[in-house]
Design a protein around this nucleic acid. Structure first.
Length: 679
DNA sequence: AAAAAAT
């Protein structure tokens, strides 16, 4: 209701005065501009509701009032899965990171059985010639079909996944890593700096560029020597090509070669089948995870087997449970009789933001308490006393952010020496400059030889530094068919003059429904939230300049429906789950396509439609198109000016015609892709 | 530019 105040326009703003005194601000679209027409007043709740009902979707059901709409743990809502994957998958050839979406599950493309997974690990780089992979760039057909495909093509071809590159054979279950490599499959350490030209490169190309081939030597040795190779880090700024405005970081890195598991592979499987005990299974059911999602079915057995695991799945594909449940199970199995006071934690989970750490703690705590496995959050921004007290009493799992964890370790208040399983969530992000070193130092404090798990929706070669040091023989998993084409998220790029931007944004957030607005800077987030508030739209901000208490409060207000608009920096881009976000607005376009994907992933969850609009200036069109290409997202560029009707219907359900057109296809896809969509 | 410790 906060947002319902409807105030007569213009009555409250000090700049009304300004607008009258300064011609410049009278133009339509100016922030201070106040249209005379009374009709453009704010929608009040009933107006919104009626308008929306007319639209079909029926209101923001679920959310508001109750405070806790059908909450399901963040990433675990199934439905998200449904949507699919992105197209991205660039057929393999791209490096993809792809992902995009983090959240969805994918469709059923042909997955490879997840049991094959195990076999795969056992494989070892073997030597032997590799026919195809030796091809040189010049030799290969300039562009094979895959390079030329457009999104549409891809779709028609039934989504190509990276593994399509290899001959699909029935015996694929027997392939070992080595086999795959020979077929030109990429491994994460094969990564080469890839940029927009990635679609044109083949594996062979890469190798010719000095990348070593894995079959030249045993795998471990290969890894070691690879270090000696000149290699670019993500932070390496290539001198050529770079448009000063082009973020150098936004390079598409190699996708990690992984075993893909699809929904159909896991049909009929239960958590118990995967090795999760009854108590934990019941807890999972209680949180809405009735049966395992693909990423869970794929990684849980390996985690329970003590293997190091790399897991990639869209947000909402169930990654937190994919590592949370087996961690609890493992701790339970290896637990000593008594839970000693002050016992050192045996599991550690690292996350990039405090909010995400808290969310993960909520999930793991819920699973753990059923069986007496205790967790605690160790994050900055709050007094350490309570955290230290918790540690003193003894916990089994520590979940937190790097800074405070390291701080407590140095104070000798936290001993990581007994950590047997360490998880790095949003791993690719945690391997970026600024995060990497603390993460490395922390992991080095864990028990030697301890198990390591890396998860992210955009897991890519950026994690190689960590992998090389801490995950000797990892098993790599991903969910099949997470192509962008199957996403239920609608993307639009709104092109507007810079001077009209704030007015456009204000008009956008007047739409009914929960909206998250992303900005590049804290100051802009703050300013926009204030502007919206001045305009009578209840909005809160979330960024690093706020106290942790305020951050928590803002997030809570949005979750509980106290406000419908959250203006945040990228602190909220990853991992955070909030039900029913109708629209994600990018007030500033992201510099990296991965950021685009993570921000977008805040909506379109749980099988709902979602929309993402990115506001850009005309001059940014080209760069934005490049970013979309990297993400393999198709989005129309629409010129807009304040007052355009389009801006008033961004959270409205799709037009009837559109629904009719999409319904059948969507249903088919879902059925196939989501056997687990139960929940 | 943002995030991540606290003082």
């Amino acid at each position: 209701m906060a947002h319902n105040h409807s105030r007569p326009q213009g009555a409250h703003r000090s700049n009304d005065r300004d607008s009258s005194s300064r011609p410049g601000s009278r133009s339509k679209g100016h922030r201070g501009f106040r249209d005379e027409q009374p009709s453009k007043g704010r929608w009040n709740q009933s107006e919104r509701d009626s308008r929306r009902d007319g639209g079909a979707q029926g209101g923001r059901s679920g959310r508001s009032s109750s405070g806790r709409p059908n909450w399901t743990p963040p990433e675990e809502r199934n439905r998200d899965h449904q949507r699919g994957p992105s197209f991205r998958t660039r057929g393999g050839s791209h490096g993809g990171r792809d992902h995009q979406g983090d959240e969805r599950v994918h469709r059923g493309e042909r997955p490879r059985g997840f049991d094959r997974a195990r076999d795969e690990h056992n494989g070892r780089g073997r030597s032997g010639a590799a026919p195809d992979r030796n091809r040189r760039f010049e030799d290969r057909p300039r562009r094979d079909d895959r390079d030329q495909r457009s999104f549409g093509d891809r779709r028609e071809q039934g989504q190509r996944r990276f593994d399509d590159r290899a001959p699909r054979r029935d015996d694929r279950d027997q392939r070992s890593f080595g086999d795959r490599r020979e077929q030109g499959q990429r491994r994460f350490d094969d990564r080469a700096p890839r940029r927009d030209d990635r679609d044109q490169r083949s594996f062979g190309d890469r190798r010719e560029q000095g990348q070593r081939r894995f079959d030249d030597r045993p795998r471990r040795e290969e890894r070691r020597s690879f270090d000696e190779q000149p290699r670019r880090d993500s932070t390496y700024y290539p001198s050529k090509d770079s448009n000063p405005f082009q973020p150098k970081d936004d390079v598409v890195l190699e996708r990690l070669e992984a075993k893909a598991t699809s929904a159909e592979d896991v049909a009929g499987i239960s958590f118990a089948d995967l090795g999760i005990g009854d108590s934990i299974s019941r807890a999972l059911t209680g949180m809405g995870a009735v049966s395992p999602f693909p990423i869970q079915a794929a990684t849980i057995p390996d985690v329970l087997a003590g293997r190091d695991v790399l897991g990639r799945g869209r947000t909402g594909s169930g990654k937190s449970i994919a590592f949370g449940a087996p961690i609890v199970e493992m701790l339970l199995r290896g637990r000593s009789e008594r839970r000693e006071i002050g016992r050192a934690p045996r599991a550690l989970v690292l996350a990039p933001t405090r909010e995400l750490a808290q969310q993960l703690n909520h999930t793991i705590m819920t699973l753990g308490r059923e069986v007496g496995v205790f967790t605690t959050v160790i994050v900055g921004g709050v007094k350490q006393d309570r955290q230290v007290e918790g540690l003193r009493r003894g916990v089994d799992v520590v979940i937190g952010t790097p800074g405070r964890i390291e701080d407590l370790v140095e104070q000798r208040k936290l001993n990581l020496g007994a950590v047997e399983i360490a998880v790095v969530d949003e791993a690719d992000h945690m391997c970026e400059l600024g995060f990497l070193e603390p993460v490395q130092r922390i992991l080095r404090r864990t028990k030697p030889g301890s198990q390591k798990l890396l998860f992210s929706a955009t897991l890519d070669a950026e994690v190689q530094t960590i992998v090389k040091e801490f995950l000797p023989e990892p098993s790599v998993h991903e969910v099949a068919g997470e192509e962008q084409s199957t996403s239920t998220i609608d993307h639009q790029i709104l092109v507007t003059d810079r001077y009209d931007k704030d007015a456009v944004l204000e008009q956008i957030v007047r739409n009914p429904g929960r909206i998250i607005v992303f900005t590049r800077t804290r100051a802009y987030a703050e300013r926009l939230a204030e502007q919206f508030g001045d305009a009578g739209i209840a909005a809160v901000s979330l960024h690093g300049d706020l106290t942790q208490a305020k951050r928590n409060r803002s997030l809570e207000k949005l979750k509980r429906g106290k406000v419908d608009v959250l203006v945040a920096t990228d602190v909220a881009a990853r991992g955070i789950h909030i039900d029913d976000i109708a629209l994600v607005v990018q007030a500033d376009p992201p510099d990296e396509y991965k950021t685009y994907m993570h921000r977008s992933g805040r909506t379109g969850r749980a099988g709902n439609d979602g929309r993402v609009v990115t506001v850009i200036a005309p001059a940014r069109r080209k760069r934005t198109q490049q970013l979309l290409d990297r993400a393999e997202i198709e989005a129309p560029m629409i010129p807009v000016t304040p007052g355009d009707d389009l801006l008033d219907t961004l959270t409205a359900p799709p037009a009837a015609a559109e629904i009719a057109e999409h319904e059948p296809a969507a249903a088919g896809t879902d059925a196939q892709a989501q056997p687990t969509a139960s929940v």
